[in-house]
Computed example of a mutant assay.
Amino acid sequence: MSAENQDKQTELDETIIENSAAEAQAKTEELTPEEKLSGELAAEKDKFLRLFAEFENFKRRTAKERLELFKTANQEVLQAMLPVLDDFDRALVEIRKSEDETLLKGVELIHEKFKHTLTSKGLELVEVNVGDAFNADFAEAITQIPAPSEDLKGKIVDVLEKGYKLGDKIIRFPKVVTGQ
């Protein structure tokens, strides 16, 4: 609810309360003192319940906004770290080609620690494999090539870039090549 709508709702609530109070006051002029007091008590209870409900709605709304803020802040940081993770993956492929086992082991340890840290913050890999049917909801087709075999037509031929999701939301779609 926007601030303008909240202001209108608050004005409407105040008008209803004022009208209720005016009606109660008109009725109290004809009633006995006990009836007047019970009428005033009912009006105050009504006002209290409305105020309490408005406060509960405010608490719920601010809690929801706070959760959304934390999710989006975390998402931006994780998206900024994805290119670093991609660079680690490419570096590991090249280091495996060399014969330096110590360097390979060190980079693998750092890579695993980095992946574990991102995973602990909610980052998950979007699973797409060569041979899977292409689904535009879960992957982005960069290009199409003639299918190497008949069974790969309309399916994923190659995965160029991994995709990731945060919770249920995909923050980066996997980039794939499809068979035509």
Rank of each mutant, 00 (worst) to 15 (best):
V107Y: 06
K105W: 07
V126I: 11
E99D: 15
G106P: 00
K97P: 05
V107A: 09
D100A: 03
H116S: 15
L125T: 08
L103T: 13
S98G: 13
V107W: 02
H111A: 15
T119V: 10
E108Q: 14
D100W: 03
K115T: 11
K97N: 10
V107D: 03
E127L: 06
T119E: 14
I110V: 14
V107N: 00
V107F: 08
K113N: 15
R96I: 12
G122D: 07
K121E: 12
K105H: 12
V126T: 05
F114L: 09
K121Q: 12
V128Q: 00
L103F: 04
G122F: 01
I95L: 05
L118S: 06
V128I: 10
E94Y: 03
T117S: 04
L123V: 12
L123Q: 04
K97W: 09
E99K: 13
H116D: 15
E94T: 07
K113F: 13
G122E: 00
L118A: 06
I110Q: 11
K121D: 04
H116L: 11
K105C: 05
I95E: 01
E101V: 15
S98H: 06
K105N: 13
L103V: 05
E101G: 08
L123I: 11
E124K: 09
L118I: 11
H116K: 15
T102L: 12
F114Q: 02
V128E: 04
K105P: 08
E124T: 12
L118C: 05
L118H: 06
E99R: 13
K105I: 08
G122V: 09
G106L: 13
V128L: 04
G122N: 02
E112Q: 14
F114N: 01
R96M: 07
T102I: 10
T117M: 08
H116P: 01
L123D: 03
I95D: 00
I110S: 12
T119Q: 08
L123G: 05
E112G: 15
F114C: 04
K97R: 14
V126K: 00
L118W: 07
E101N: 11
G106V: 06
V128K: 00
L123R: 01
H111E: 14
L123T: 07
V128M: 02
E94V: 06
L125G: 00
K115Y: 07
T119R: 03
H116C: 04
E108N: 11
E99C: 05
K113Y: 13
T117E: 08
